[in-house]
Design a protein around this nucleic acid. Structure first.
Lengths: 203, 203
DNA sequence: GTCTATAGTAAGATAGAC
DNA sequence: GTCTATCTTACTATAGAC
């Protein structure tokens, strides 16, 4: 059975994916060479290539990990105490969960990989469905997703290597949350959209 | 005087920047090698290196071009007939102006270049200032910028090589414009950032 | 399961002809 | 201003020892 008590014994295969994620996120696709990944993971190039025979296999390994993590994230969103929408927006700029780190890594990969692009599109589809369920309004759900993308890509792309203050931060997110609350409050007039009761976290 | 009648005679230096932009946008940073850029621009590697002595100089050339184009874009925004905000959002996903193409190229570069990241941050700062002027509300201005980033990075990063229908499209943008109009309709009272009727509906 | 050594290729950059 | 070599380094991947 797996040893849950010794996190230091993290298997080499996992350490390789961790290192690949970290390099992609912090230094970009070009820097994430087999050599650099192996060094960062504390294995040799040959050792890395035992677990992932080609660079393409390494990428596929990362996408598989993303798929696992997104499923867990959707479940967390559904049960968040602050409501799914605010949870979703605030977690868009979080930088220390494995899920967010993996997502940023895959976003960087997506610039030259169709498979990575497709994986991101799938994540977005799953998010949209769940937010639409939460707010009961398609326009608003799509807009919330765009805001999240703005926060997310901003924090993914504008972030300086060591400086977490660059890119969108608490200030932007607070602004967006306030704006969406205004909308939630503005919904009762049955304007032109097609929803009914918009309960983002409402009552 | 410059020859305005012969666009075919576009100087090699410009063709190199065009080709670099195109490769970055369509195939990513890793594909934009000196060799590939030279080939796409119709010059030899030596020819390219006459105009840009190093790869870093090529990148700097692209950032300088972006700076010129953003200034022109801000001016166009100010005088847009549909108003600056809607103009801004709709142009976030446009894909055929030199400005948008350059911006997407620089976004891809920003994954491994501090200078490119800084250039994008500067563009955002200039946009924010102008939108804040237009809507007179800091929260709303920042939110609009995030929506735009969502549209923009989505169209930049999720777009398939040859398929312009992937990523955010007219549907998302229309949704966002409708949502912002709801807000605008709700704006008539008290015009600073901290008052009552728009506030937090939540508790 | 992990290592060292190395083959083969492609990258950024230089030198010098035209 | 643009070209054709060519140098050097770094990348992906393979082979075979331990």
């Amino acid at each position: 059975m797996p040893d849950v008590t010794a996190p230091a014994a993290r298997p080499a295969r996992e350490r390789v994916l961790d290192a690949y994620t970290d390099l992609l996120e912090r230094r970009g696709e070009r820097a994430a060479t087999l050599d650099a990944v192996a060094r960062a993971a504390g294995v040799s190039k040959g050792g890395l290539l035992y677990h992932f025979a080609t660079k393409h296999a390494l990428e596929a390994g990362l996408l598989a990990r993303l798929d696992t993590l997104v499923t867990a994230d959707l479940a967390a969103m559904r049960t968040a105490p602050e409501g799914p929408v605010e949870h979703f927006l605030r977690s868009s700029a979080s930088d220390d969960t494995p899920f967010d780190r993996t997502l940023r890594a895959v976003a960087r990969l997506s610039q030259s990989s169709d498979a990575a692009r497709q994986a991101l599109a799938d994540v977005n589809t799953r998010w949209l469905a769940q937010i639409r369920d939460a707010v009961g309004d398609d326009d608003l759900a799509r807009t919330i997703l765009l805001i999240s993308d703005g926060i997310y890509y901003g924090s993914a792309l504008l972030r300086e290597q060591g400086d977490p203050t660059a890119g969108p931060g608490a200030r932007e997110i607070d602004a967006a949350v306030r704006v969406i609350r205004r909308l939630a409050g503005n919904e009762g007039d049955g304007a032109d959209g097609s929803r009914g009761s918009l309960a983002a976290r409402a009552d």
